[in-house]
Design a protein around this nucleic acid. Structure first.
Lengths: 268, 268
DNA sequence: CAACTGTGTGAACACCGTTCACCCCGACCC
DNA sequence: GGGTCGGGGTGAACGGTGTTCACACAGTTG
């Protein structure tokens, strides 16, 4: 780590400062307000200097996305650790509640990460018609550049689920029959789950995570995301005074469907 | 209707042209590309002329939002009518599938309407510190201006659900117990549902729509929205080759929970 | 006819992302 | 030491943006 040059350290510092400033602007005044000139102004430099660090505003926003995901990860993980590992359902509840709380407290960041269609070179890459080859032209950046936000968030979700799965008894039920058309995708996802967990040092026996379980997780991610996004964007079909009871009831249903007949947790 | 002045008709025409052009730009090149100057260019006028019709770009976008909702309504309603009224479950399936198809075909419009935090006077109203009174200063515009997008969409949802509810036998189950904290909100929503249905000429006996049913609808809106938003934004925790089986399975579960043990519809 | 009102214009302001030529200073090599 | 080189920063500039304002013109209204 300390092998880095002085220059490299300085560069990394300002790079971090830039993203932090951008994020402060995002949180404070919304996505449209995170402006290259505003960032530069805040840092006491000029806007073109930022191009020494990021290729474009869009690239900067992508980097901010990754920072947000890292922070979300860092916030959800301890929320799990606070619950004893012999209470897997409690851990699931904890991470779901923490995710909701985070989303409500950081709506702008939630929107940027979880509700933007696509991030790949919006209207810029086509200005040079010569480079039509889809092959890996720039190995350094483009290699892992496909769907960075999704990958980054995928890892958050994987971490979270992984920490729950290491409970002494797996909580995911195995009574569902998965749709045949989803089989291949689910197998791929289970592979990624196990690999990603192994990276963090968590080894899960493969037979613990059956395909039914993966399907179960996927289905519940839909409900979790649906509720939180609706609440953040205030898009319930009618103004809901307080959506928390609805959320807690959803968790109760999750508990029931998981095979826990009498959930102990009632409110957060 | 024909009582309108020639001037008024002309004005309404260009007003419609403006929104149509804005929407074409939105569909073709994304939200950021719907620019006052681009709209004006397309219409052969100059940008400031648009201010004779809309107070700001944000106001124009709001109007576009309402147009989108109206179109969505116009697209979902016939999707229901095509299914015989003695097949309420089939109608629900039809409208859910139509909504998903519409969202996937119009991602930009879906994002604008269903995934934007708030629309109320973003950073403009505070420039004049003198008008700090929150009272109804401008009766004409501000009167029904609160949460126009939500209201507008709420009506879409209400219409859709309403047409399903007029089936000879109500399909919504009544076996659920609703959370006590949600009681008041659900009562309010049921009221709005019935009122809005009455406006369209559909009279539903009040006892047909019990509070359990409203709660049931709300819960399923969460799942429907969650799946569609995830698919449109491509934010499943892992790349899903084809999300349609997952969607169809969700509909099957809806059928089961509605009390239809053996759903006849299998794929769209 | 005159007055007024609605509609459109062109110039202007402040801001934006991005590019370019330039400059300066620290790091490196000889 | 001196020389080179390159990364980081600058200011000017280009084209674009939302928005405001004074002005002009047509159509309606008195």
């Amino acid at each position: 780590m300390t092998e880095a040059t002085r220059r490299e350290r300085l560069r990394a510092d300002t790079e971090r400062d830039i993203r932090a400033t951008a994020r402060a602007l995002l949180v404070g005044q919304g996505r449209d307000s995170v402006t290259l000139r505003a960032i530069a102004r805040e840092l006491g430099i000029t806007a073109p200097a930022l191009y020494r660090y990021y290729d474009s505003r869009e690239a900067l926003l992508r980097a901010v996305c990754e920072d947000i995901c890292a922070d979300l990860d860092a916030e959800l993980t301890p929320a799990i650790r606070d619950v004893p590992s012999d209470d897997p359902l409690g851990r699931v509840f904890a991470v779901c509640r923490a995710f909701r709380r985070w989303a409500l407290a950081h709506p702008q960041e939630f929107e940027l990460v979880f509700a933007s269609p696509e991030e790949e070179s919006v209207g810029l890459g086509r200005t040079e018609p010569g480079r039509t080859e889809p092959g890996r032209a720039e190995p350094g950046r483009a290699e892992r550049g496909r769907r960075p936000a999704q990958d980054r968030f995928g890892s958050v979700f994987i971490h979270v689920i992984g920490h729950v799965l290491v409970a002494p008894e797996a909580f995911v039920p195995t009574s569902e029959d998965v749709p045949a058309e989803l089989h291949d995708d689910l197998v791929t996802y289970r592979q990624r789950l196990l690999e990603s967990l192994a990276e963090v040092g968590v080894t899960v026996p493969a037979e613990l995570l059956q395909l039914d379980g993966v399907y179960f997780i996927l289905k519940w991610w839909v409900r979790l995301y649906g509720h939180i996004a609706l609440e953040v964007f205030d898009r319930f079909p009618f103004p809901l005074r307080d959506a928390e009871p609805l959320f807690e009831r959803m968790l109760t249903e999750l508990a029931v469907e998981s095979g826990f007949p009498n959930p102990a947790a009632n409110d957060g």
